[in-house]
Amino acid sequence: MARNVGKAPSKQIDAEAYWKANLKIIVILLTIWFVVSYVPVLLVNQLNQITFLTGFPFGYYMGSQGSLIVFVIEIFFYAWWMGKLDRQFGLHED
């Protein structure tokens, strides 16, 4: 990120870089979202051969708990990451 950080004189360039950085993290997180929710469904029969924790078939576990845990973490991660990005670009509100 060689571009200007903090209160930059040129608002336009700042906004563009900020938006690009935002889109990048959105794409990464959506990819993870897709991988933990849709891929285990496609592979459920194979995953169910694995027994997990107290006796869960792993395919069932991913649908009932595994993917949900990842969803929660992803959202908090995004909030934290964007907070950091806001400060980096001088866009935080306080």
């Binding site: 649908g63 009932s64 995004y78």
Partner: peptide, 24 residues
């Protein structure tokens, strides 16, 4: 059984879309 998990994942996974794409 397993088929019911479409609701569990569907009704929670939607919040990821909400957080990343809409809420802010």
């Amino acid at each position: 059984g397993y088929d019911g998990l479409a609701y569990i994942m569907g009704w929670t996974g939607g919040y990821v879309l909400l957080a990343l794409l809409f809420a802010p």
